[in-house]
């Protein structure tokens, strides 16, 4: 390991914070919009779909794709910042 212990700890805790942020979005979109609050959202029409139905069957998937790529970008930046990239 080329970096100091403190650096490694700081890297890890920033990493955890990034993961928690993205997982929070992941949870709200899939379990929130797609399952728990569907009935309220279904009252809203979205391009011909009841909004809750759209989140459950399509919208959440688009958000998942966006989340992974945003995570990739965040981590690449973090790796550079702590000079642990390859």
């Amino acid at each position: 390991m080329s970096i100091s212990n403190d650096q490694a700890q700081a890297y890890w805790s920033e990493n955890l914070r990034i993961i928690m942020t993205y997982l929070a979005i992941w949870f709200v979109v899939s379990y929130g919009c797609g399952i728990l609050f569907v009935e309220q959202l279904d009252a809203i029409q979205f391009f011909g779909f009841p909004l809750g139905f759209w989140f459950g069957q399509q919208g959440s998937i688009f958000v998942f794709v966006g989340l992974i790529w945003a995570y990739v970008a965040s981590m690449n930046k973090l790796d550079e910042k702590y000079d642990v990239h390859e």
Binding site: I19, Y22, L23, W26, S30, G34, I35, F53, G56, Q57, Q58, S60, I61, F64, L67, I68, Y71, V72, M75
Partner: peptide
């Protein structure tokens, strides 16, 4: 399956794609 169960099919659509977010964030790297 979704053709016959409609709305409840969401569980499969989200379940079989949302797992990749977990893979990318928690396991793969």
């Amino acid at each position: 399956l979704i053709s016959f169960i409609g709305r409840d099919g969401s569980a499969y659509l989200m379940g079989w794609t949302g797992g990749y977010v977990l893979l990318a964030l928690l396991l793969a790297p």
